[in-house]
């Protein structure tokens, strides 16, 4: 068990595993995402209330879902960085934060565009959209702090503290934004929560969520590899790896 843990912390070991894993992640992810999206766009039945605009759900929900879980993953990695000082954990946080930012932006954008035919305006200060916006700010803060600190080790630990403070705040933010929303505009039409969604709708949704997860895994591996090469360029194995590509 401990040996496994140590191995997991070794950048070289991870690099090899990631190289072997990545083609699978990409193929499976792309296939699932494509299947979910095509099914959702062309074959799923029309929603009786919102018409065809609901088809945005098949990308809105996956991006929103993943944007939130990426932050939770970052928080877990932050704990690992602070407690066990594992190199890979902080490589993960650094590599994945921009991906989280892009996903959050996509969730916000699709939510806003969906709002136009549903609510009649591009933006409503709805509880979900507002807490997504705050999540975007949190990601922005993490990236800005990481960029501002030159020393790698302190940057990793400072970012970990910030991510943890943020993750403690996320439930509080969510709860307070929901409370604020009911205070100002009682019982708006909810975007995603349906009492009963037919299987022709939720199966493609599930497929695209899973597909985006795999794509995220691929992106995380790729970006972590980049970061590992950059950090470990003084080691023998990275030198061999880099020079092996060229004569």
């Amino acid at each position: 068990m401990w040996q496994f843990f140590h191995k997991l912390g070794s950048p070289k070991w991870f690099y090899g595993i990631a190289t072997r894993l990545m083609p699978w992640l990409l193929v499976v992810g792309a296939a699932l995402l494509l299947a979910g999206v095509v099914w959702g766009l062309a074959f799923a039945p029309k929603d009786y209330l919102q018409g065809n605009s609901y088809r945005i759900i098949f990308i809105h929900v996956p991006t929103a879902f993943l944007a939130q879980s990426v932050y939770i993953m970052m928080a877990v990695a932050a704990v690992v960085t602070l407690v066990w000082r594992m190199k890979l954990a902080d490589v993960f946080v650094k590599a994945v934060a921009p991906v989280g930012l892009v996903l959050t932006f996509l969730a916000l954008f699709t939510g806003a565009v969906w709002g136009k035919p549903t609510w009649g305006t591009w933006w409503i200060w709805d509880a979900r959209l507002t807490s997504m916006l705050i999540l975007l700010f949190l990601y922005g803060g993490v990236i800005a702090l990481d960029r501002a600190i030159n020393d790698e080790k302190s940057a990793a630990r400072a970012v970990s503290v910030l991510v943890l403070v943020g993750v403690v705040n996320i439930p509080i933010i969510k709860y307070s934004v929901e409370w604020w929303n009911t205070l100002h505009q009682p019982a708006t039409f909810k975007l995603t929560e349906k009492p009963s969604m037919p299987a022709e709708m939720w199966v493609p949704l599930l497929l695209s969520v899973l597909g985006l997860y795999f794509i995220f895994g691929w992106l995380a591996c790729l970006r972590m590899q980049t970061e590992i090469i950059f950090r470990e360029q003084r080691t023998r194995w990275v030198k061999d790896l880099v020079m092996a590509g060229r004569p």
Binding site: S53, I56, L106, W114, I215, R223, T226
Partner: peptide
Amino acid sequence: EGHGPYVWTCYGVFVVLLAGLMLWSQRRR
């Protein structure tokens, strides 16, 4: 049924940003 522009804008931006992120990450490595 009239919702096409909204749906297709969303999917377009999604594909462009996701593909852009993937290509950019690969280029960076």
